[in-house]
């Protein structure tokens, strides 16, 4: 199995780096199986490289629409109590998260 991974186009380290970017922490087993699965998927999608797409415009949306504009006027938003109703942790009108900035020393 190790030899297979070595030949594949995505390495264990790639998966670990990508998981970090995606804010996922994977178990050792998950890293192994994802390396295998993503390798298989990337091997398959490699077929696109055979297509000549020089000068072809990329399509982001199938039906092109201009971004709609609206008047810059205040309108009622969601009630703050409702907005906080699903918060895992809240205080008054705020979402509570673990401390982000450490206190400066001295």
């Amino acid at each position: 199995m190790l030899a297979l991974y070595a030949m594949s186009r995505i390495t264990r380290e790639d998966v670990e780096r990508t998981a970090d970017l995606a804010r996922l922490s994977l178990s050792n087993d998950e890293i192994e199986s994802m390396t295998h699965d993503l390798g298989q998927i990337l091997d398959h999608v490699e077929q696109l490289q055979a297509l000549d797409t020089q000068g072809i415009e990329p399509t982001a949306h199938a039906i092109p629409l201009a971004t709609p504009l609206r008047a810059d006027k205040a309108s009622p938003g969601i009630d703050p109590d409702l907005a906080l109703a699903n918060a895992p942790s809240s205080d008054a009108y705020a979402f509570v998260v673990p401390k982000v900035i450490e206190a400066e020393e001295g």
């Binding site: 696109l48 490289q49 797409t53 990329p58 399509t59 199938a62």
Partner: peptide, 14 residues
């Protein structure tokens, strides 16, 4: 190599 390429092929499919 992957995302932009796929968007271009999307144009070809359309």
């Amino acid at each position: 190599a992957y995302y932009r390429k796929a968007q271009q092929v999307r144009t070809l499919v359309r």
